[in-house]
Amino acid sequence: MSEHIVSVKVYFAIFLALLVGTVLTAWVAFFDFPGPLNAIVALTIACIKAALVILYFMHMRYSSRLIWVVFGAALFWLAIMFALTFSDYSTRSWLPVF
């Protein structure tokens, strides 16, 4: 397993992208989008920023498949925790159907 060295140019580009993302997310927060769109926009930008950090700063893009699986497992289990907990809260007010 030889190590992959990421070039300074890539690091710098990611750095700039992260700064742009920060400014963007702060700016769009002042607009009142309909419905849940505000949260969706903010979280989409956050996810993109996080992905850039993970892929390049943390070298995930150049890592073995195992590391991808490990990280994917964390997301998967987080999704389980959220989905099943909300399967309770979101259906509490439903009326009985039987």
């Binding site: 920060t22 997310t25 927060a29 505000n38 979280l43 956050a46």
Partner: peptide, 15 residues
């Protein structure tokens, strides 16, 4: 922090 910033600081800014 990248997640905390929008979730905590930005979510009610539009009001």
């Amino acid at each position: 922090w990248i997640f905390l910033f929008p979730l905590l600081y930005l979510l009610g800014r539009h009001i």
